[in-house]
Design a protein around this nucleic acid. Structure first.
Lengths: 107, 107
DNA sequence: TTCGGTACTCAGTGCCACACAGTACCACTA
DNA sequence: TAGTGGTACTGTGTGGCACTGAGTACCGAA
């Protein structure tokens, strides 16, 4: 699926939050996970900018660990602010989807 | 609901396409319709920039008609390209929502 | 020793919603 | 007849976000 970029604005960050929330993980693995999920065109660069933003905004706790197969990995876990942000994200998502459903059905 | 801006990127244009597709209408009325639907914070300026973009991209047919209660209205109707774009929008929307559902349920 | 996979960084681009100020037409009213 | 408020469109500028692309670096296997 092409041309999703604009529609992913704000959403992709939520996806990353959700992935981190379900398991402490790192950028490269998050990218693979997103690709697996069907966000096939998402590349490392995109995910890393999101991760740096999350870190800057104080939503995650970061731990650096050696990798064994490459440079050290930066593992990300949600802190309280991150969990709150994730909840807000899903609330917004539900809000928007409900409006869109209504619109689609001629409401 | 606050802070929806980023998540509306790309989506709001689709909403406008859908509204125009269901009935030939004009900017001011589209804004009211969006407000009614729950997009409470969407203002005229936002809708007009979308309409100008749709026009520029050749997705709509525009007809100017006197109003009786203010300046003349610019009525918008979808042309073939617009209908195709609308179909594409809903396809993308469905694609993204299905991925998000999958993610949410731990898929 | 070169290649490919793993792993992160950073500067820059383009698009979109949105803010904000302006123009203009009309009806009502004091 | 000046003022107010609702209707209706235009245009410039801003900020945020996904994305690009080039760079750095580590490792194992061919």
């Amino acid at each position: 699926m092409d041309g999703l970029t604009e529609m992913l604005k704000g959403t992709l960050e939520g996806c990353v939050l959700e992935i981190i929330g379900s398991e402490e993980t790192y950028g490269y693995a998050i990218t693979r996970r997103l690709n697996e999920l069907g966000f096939a065109d998402v590349v490392e660069g995109t995910v890393y900018t999101i991760l740096l933003r999350l870190e800057k905004n104080g939503l995650v706790q970061v731990t650096k660990r050696p990798s064994g197969q490459g440079p050290p990995r930066k593992f990300y876990a949600l802190n309280d602010a991150g969990r709150a942000e994730l909840a807000t994200f899903w609330a917004k998502w539900e809000y928007i989807t409900s409006r869109l459903d209504k619109l689609k059905e001629g409401g």
